[in-house]
């Protein structure tokens, strides 16, 4: 029987240092193609250290590689910052729900990311750009704490250079060499130009940020059933058996992490649920 608790070893092909504490690891899956949907995550196992849930940050059209962007903050993820090509990680997945790439067809798509929340949204952005004609306006709003904590900087520059995509990058704390906007993502969202009544908003970031983003989007006239957010909860198994990620009746690893806002608005308002 296939054992859902046991990871499959995969070899690191490429390591890109994004920021002081964040790396993007590309695993080689050419021997056994890995299919996933934008927004899904994997359990990533480091030998001898443990396993953590990490969203997939690569292109869903490239099954020969599997990409994760990892911030080194705990005993499992910190050693992952030091991995080099040829090292091996264990993978279980993919798990969870996906961004609404189908539901968003024909609408303006507003992507609002905060901090490392850009990583789970990157496959969504790749999908939007790969199928550019299926969507109307595309707006990417990305907020980071400081300029040096932004992910995918080269890619952001490249996207900003495109004519068919609006990119607004904002930071919470400016520095002397930063000439972009300083302020929270909601400020950038409020200034963005799109048709609120025919838009899809997808957001991923800290819960507080997402709450303010949704608040702003609703104030601008976006219906609640056109907003999707990705939730984070403690996860140990990702298969609905360990109980950790429960949120009301849901196991976030199965019914989430990506939720349509009108399904969770009432729960989101409850403290410590």
């Amino acid at each position: 029987m296939n054992d859902p608790w046991v990871p499959t070893p995969m070899t690191v092909r490429e390591v890109v240092r994004e920021t002081a504490d964040t790396v993007t690891l590309t695993l080689d899956t050419s021997a056994s193609p890995f299919a996933f949907a934008p927004g899904q995550f994997n359990m990533v196992y480091l030998f001898g250290q443990g396993e953590v849930p990490i969203s997939i940050s690569g292109h869903a059209d490239r099954p020969d590689e599997l990409v994760h962007t990892i911030r080194g903050v705990g005993p499992v993820t910190r050693p992952m910052l030091d991995l080099v090509p040829g090292d091996v990680l264990g993978i279980r997945g993919p798990f969870g729900t996906a961004w609404p790439v189908e539901e968003a067809r024909g609408t303006d798509v507003i992507v609002v990311a905060g901090g490392i929340g850009l990583a789970p949204l990157r496959p969504m952005i790749y999908h939007l750009l790969a199928n550019r004609r299926d969507y109307a306006r595309i707006v990417l709003i990305y907020g980071a704490r400081q300029p040096d904590q932004m992910l995918f900087v080269d890619e952001l520059h490249h996207w900003r250079g495109r004519f068919d995509l609006t990119v607004e990058v904002t930071v919470d704390q400016g520095t002397e060499d930063w000439f972009g906007p300083v302020g929270v993502v909601t400020r950038s969202l409020a200034r963005a130009r799109f048709d609120a009544d025919d838009a899809t908003v997808v957001t991923c970031g800290p819960e507080v940020m997402m709450r303010f983003v949704v608040h702003e989007a609703v104030r601008m006239g976006v219906p609640q059933d056109r907003i999707w957010a990705s939730m984070e909860r403690n996860m140990k198994c990702a298969i609905g058996l360990c109980g950790h990620c429960q949120w009301g009746p849901d196991f976030v690893c199965k019914q989430g992490p990506v939720y349509r806002w009108d399904h969770i608005a009432h729960r989101f308002a409850e403290k410590e649920l």
């Binding site: 990892i70 901090g115 929340g117 907020g143 919470d172 302020g183 970031g205 507080v208 940020m209 303010f212």
Partner: peptide, 20 residues
């Protein structure tokens, strides 16, 4: 009012924690 709202959100320093 908007500036205050933004300042409150920023005061929480929301990006200090990771989100994977």
């Amino acid at each position: 009012h908007r500036r205050l709202e933004h300042t409150r959100l920023r005061a929480m320093d929301v990006y200090k924690g990771p989100l994977t």
